[in-house]
Write a protein that binds this DNA or RNA. Structure first.
Lengths: 138, 138
DNA sequence: GCAATAATGCAATTCCATTGCATACATTTT
DNA sequence: AAAATGTATGCAATGGAATTGCATTATTGC
């Protein structure tokens, strides 16, 4: 089991107290979170710092960025063996219209999508919207 | 062949000069357009009017709204036989990272996506990103 | 034509993302 | 260990797009 420090160092991210806290926060959340979610969790910290920290994580491929159609960017830790940047490894996301949570369905890979001649597919964003298990069960 | 007036009336949208113009503009564009695109095409008109006109079109199901991940909402006329609101009829969208255009691939339907037990799928947003035929051909 | 209803235009606001700059911290070098 | 360098953080401000309130104008039904 890798420590968080090791994860960060292996990606050439300097270890700071703030970054460790934010990493832990992301790891604790099974759902994708917004910047505001993070901001609420760390009220003493400045929004800019949180913003840049997460941005660094995204650039260094330890967090992936999700656009679930709400207009607000969400973030989630990548899986250990995740290679988000590679098309074939992309999983899909589920956005619950009821509780407004977005969940990574990491075990659900995106099926191969055919595009017309001349089009080159580099990346796929697939968001399923509806009702999540928690909300539909009630 | 239905006239634009008939299309609008059939959806209970009051026919106005502005709405006819915006409808025509959307019909002329094969690609999905942003509010700013529309604004540039009708510089005399106010942004709010354009915004509300398109919003009305979306609500009445003659335009569908696309979230291609650029952070800016795009709009495109629905096909005549389109029923966007129904999951099985959803087509996919292609966003070109080069020319920044978003195209409706209406003939490409979204494959059936499986979601885990307890999840109810109501809607699917699928955007393929890469290089469009025009850009890859050069 | 008149009253009711809806569309339009202007101004202002909200919300989130993003940047500039000064300061604090950490790492490396001597 | 101190100085020098580079990076992270915090504060303030900006930008861009979506959205709303309200007054005015147009359209519809009677």
């Amino acid at each position: 089991m890798e420590t968080i420090e090791q994860v960060l160092e292996s990606k050439n991210i300097r270890v700071t107290a703030m970054r460790l806290l934010i990493y832990k926060f992301l790891a604790e959340n099974q759902v994708a979170v917004t910047l505001s979610d993070i901001e609420n969790a760390f009220e003493k910290a400045d929004r800019t710092t949180l913003y840049r920290t997460v941005k660094t994580f995204v650039e260094k491929d330890i967090v992936h960025q999700i656009d679930d159609g709400t207009g607000i960017v969400k973030y989630a830790l990548c899986e250990q063996d995740c290679s988000c940047e590679i098309e074939t490894d992309l999983h899909l996301h589920f956005h619950c219209n009821n509780c407004n949570e977005t969940i990574c369905l990491t075990e659900h890979k995106i099926p191969k999508i055919k595009v017309p001649n001349g089009f080159v597919s580099e990346n796929i964003n697939l968001v399923v919207k509806g009702m999540c298990d928690k909300c539909s069960g009630q």
